[in-house]
Amino acid sequence: MRQLAALPPVPYQPEALGEALRQEQAWVAVAWVGDYILARQALPDLVYALPAEGTLLWMEHYVIPRGARYPEAALRLLNYLLRPEISAQITTRSLWATANEASWSQVHLEPELQALIFPPAEALSNAELTLPLSPEAEMTYNQIWEQFLRDRSTSAPTPSASPAPR
């Protein structure tokens, strides 16, 4: 953990990812494919790779809060957004994948972008969805994170020296 804490901080700002890489504030980054596509505008030689060892899957959720003032209107909006032709338009314009499989054939992008947004199944064979932690695991996670922040605040990063292993 001390090795991570000794690294110079690079705030995660998806819109500034390409600039941070171009200015060599970072040489590698973990990014969602949409962030990579944006970063590639600033750095055309940027390469995106899905690790064979696996990666995290993510998803967005449409929800209607229990106390919503106009739940019927919200439901109509969700039904509209989930229509295959609308879902395909959203993906085509935003360059973010959709889980709405009925819309996939209606997404029309350059083949390279299509392959990034919808990677082949074999590229995701080791990918995992993160699920909510149990209360005990959440507490452990928070303790580790707090320790990381404490270590980070007391370490003085020096670019020329390697941090000592813990």
Rank of each mutant, 00 (worst) to 15 (best):
V28G: 12
V28A: 14
V28Q: 11
V28M: 11
V28W: 01
A29V: 08
A29I: 07
A29E: 09
V30F: 13
V30C: 09
W32H: 15
V33I: 15
V33E: 13
D35H: 14
D35P: 10
Y36V: 08
Y36A: 06
Y36P: 02
Y36W: 14
I37S: 13
L38F: 04
L38I: 06
L38H: 11
L38G: 09
R40L: 04
R40H: 08
R40C: 06
R40F: 03
Q41Y: 01
Q41W: 00
D45K: 02
L46G: 13
V47G: 05
V47N: 11
A49S: 15
L50H: 05
P51R: 01
A52H: 00
E53F: 01
G54N: 07
G54D: 09
G54R: 02
T55L: 15
T55Q: 12
L56F: 13
L57E: 08
L57H: 02
L57C: 04
W58I: 04
M59K: 14
M59A: 15
E60M: 03
E60H: 06
H61V: 10
Y62V: 08
Y62H: 12
Y62D: 15
V63Q: 09
V63L: 12
V63C: 08
I64V: 14
I64N: 05
P65A: 10
P65I: 01
P65K: 04
R66Y: 11
G67M: 08
A68N: 11
A68Q: 10
R69K: 09
R69W: 00
R69M: 06
Y70K: 08
Y70D: 14
P71Y: 08
P71F: 04
E72P: 04
A73W: 10
A74G: 04
L75Y: 10
L75G: 14
L75T: 13
R76I: 02
R76N: 11
L78W: 03
L78P: 00
N79D: 12
N79S: 06
Y80W: 10
Y80F: 12
L81T: 07
L81V: 04
L81P: 09
P84I: 01
P84Y: 01
E85K: 03
E85Q: 10
I86A: 05
S87F: 00
A88C: 07
Q89P: 06
Q89N: 15
I90C: 06
